[in-house]
Design a protein around this nucleic acid. Structure first.
Lengths: 355, 355
DNA sequence: CACTCACGTGGATACGTTTTCAAGCATCTC
DNA sequence: GAGATGCTTGAAAACGTATCCACGTGAGTG
């Protein structure tokens, strides 16, 4: 940075004290004449207050942190765009990190945010309560987006979650805890349960009985919803997991198709898994939807480009991000509660009657 | 933030001065015994230096800014992942902004970075020299990625670029300027010229004569390369532009197909445009590749999912981001020069012989 | 032994801002 | 007219760090 005018320069040029300049610029009280003069001088000097000084004084960095698993996944791209849109309208900077769905990397990134004194973060979490506990205890305002940490869905019971409690919004009010008051973390989620249920019913309606689920990291709630929607005797072999990578997703999909040629429909828990399913099916000469029906979680632009176009459960990625950013910004005044956004089954061409 | 140990606490606990602690932690000289003691105390107190204090002292924020047009575009997602990977390995934070391909928003974001004293930024620029001049004059180290500002390709001639000069790497050495030494901005680019040329030759080889180009914001170099590759009498109606939005891209593609039913091949300048072309072709009942051949710039995962799979010009998005981040980090020691990364024509199924 | 030199060390300062505090001044009230 | 009240104002004190500078100590050199 070459050198910019400081508040001191403005004060001198306007013939007032620095305190007055600060007040005028941050909306404090000042006489009309002084205000006018200060504003004029500031404009003339092209003065822009340095965030550095302010941050140090307030012992906190403005703006917010954003942690997502992978920006290459279109859904997280949408989510990030939502966050950025909200941040922009608030004039706040966003520092971003990509966790690769790895709790360790996530932990490191949290450490980095802590070091930067970024005390507001919206995250698509990969780690569990052990990862997030320290951050929250350190005073961070965190809002989860799209998911909640694993194992934290059931507030009751002596879970390993320890002092981390999540506001589920779906679960009943938590029982009073004996010892310390648990920390509460709001979240912005899609209504996975309804989305999955609708999809399963739709497939059922087409005659499908052997429906498989392709899950990825963070899809716990979707799997649970799937189990619930399918009903009691769920064939465990039909539920398959992959890690975040595309290779892993492809392997999982391919393995599933090969080991269970009797399945007639697949529900992919995310767009990367959907992509893998399409690829694997084609590789194995399975026709969609003649041989196998496919429903994908996430609506992404290319779903329409597939042949046939993919039937999807759309979740509002951009809205999720925007709302989460709103929550984290408002957290200072209003204690935020978890919000659940609706999903929508968009029927295109990838599902047919059971052959 | 609750409250953390400061360098002062460490100094007291270790019985040394703050200066010594600072030196030990930033790798300065110190006796082995002191170093050991300070380190031990720091670890025991869980001391983490505050970026706030350091930033203010050094009058600059660490890390780097990243400005991209749209995170929903997979290519920019890849690019961002590359930047983040490099930043992570350097332990540096990244503050991100999405410009929406709008110079005005870009300008605002630059202002925000300036305010944050972020003095290193890697950008996929939307604005021109007028947008970037102020930032560079203010002392920012900027590296362009994927594109260069419009109108800045020809260093020679009395261009409106003013004092902003770009290191093209492809252009001959710039002539000596009369007045002030021009500012130089390095860039990391894909070899558009070679990529486009190869694609055009490939299409020519298949017999295509009427090849259209679908361009978007920032595709100037690609258009130029297209003109060059096609040769002298270029049919201007076959070169069509869209703004960054998907709607606009679709409109452009659809309009092109309708106004020029005689074209036999389309070269889409980016993946959003490719997507639009596929959609528009389908809507108009044009079969790919029977009725029209299609080549898309950018290799994205879903290119393979299309029916038929899309022939693409692949550019290494992730590498571009990574290299750009490297350049901007090294800029302090080594004066960076523009680097051009290779592209590759990946032939799949979207091109056929002219009907 | 005197002198220099290198090195480890800590005090002090500056970075640019917000905020507290008390002082100054005009107006209002009794 | 004296006291109280309200508003505007500026000096000063933080915030946590890096760095300049001066000081002391030990070793090395003539």
């Amino acid at each position: 940075m070459e050198k910019r005018a400081t508040i001191k320069d403005v004060a001198e040029a306007a013939g007032v004290g620095v305190a007055t300049v600060s007040r005028v610029l941050s909306g404090g009280s000042a006489s009309a004449s002084t205000r006018e003069r200060v504003l004029a001088v500031a404009a003339q000097l092209d003065y822009r207050p340095s965030a550095l000084g302010r941050n140090l004084r307030q012992r906190r960095t403005g703006g917010m942190g954003l942690l997502v698993p992978d920006l290459t996944d279109t859904f997280f791209g949408q989510l990030a765009e939502g966050v950025l849109a909200c941040a922009r309208s608030a004039g706040e900077p966003v520092v971003i990190g990509s966790t690769g769905d790895d709790p360790e990397q996530e932990s490191e990134l949290i450490g980095m945010l802590l070091e930067q004194s970024v005390d507001r973060v919206i995250a698509v979490p990969s780690g569990d309560a052990d990862t997030w506990g320290p951050a929250i205890r350190a005073g961070m305002t965190v809002v989860f987006a799209d998911r909640q940490p694993a194992g934290a869905q059931e507030p009751a019971g002596g879970s390993a979650a320890g002092d981390l409690m999540l506001l589920d919004g779906l679960a009943p009010a938590p029982p009073a805890r004996p010892a310390a008051r648990p920390l509460e973390v709001p979240a912005v989620l899609a209504d996975d349960r309804a989305g999955i249920r609708t999809a399963v019913r739709y497939l059922r309606g087409l005659g499908h009985r052997r429906i498989a689920f392709l899950g990825g990291p963070g899809h716990d709630r979707r799997v649970a919803a799937f189990r619930e929607a399918v009903g009691e005797p769920v064939d465990e072999e039909l539920i398959v997991f992959a890690t975040g990578s595309r290779d892993s997703a492809y392997a999982a999909a391919s393995g599933l198709f090969q080991s269970r040629p009797d399945l007639s429909a697949v529900l992919a828990g995310g767009n990367v898994l959907g992509e893998a399913a399409v690829l694997a099916a084609r590789e194995l000469d399975l026709r969609v939807p003649r041989d196998v029906s496919l429903v994908m979680y996430d609506d992404v632009p290319w779903a329409e480009l597939c042949a046939p176009p993919l039937t999807v459960i759309a979740q509002p990625g951009r809205d999720i991000g925007y709302r989460a950013a709103e929550l984290v910004l408002r957290a200072a005044s209003r204690r935020p509660r978890t919000v659940v956004l609706p999903t929508e089954l968009i029927v295109r061409g990838s599902c047919g009657p059971r052959r």
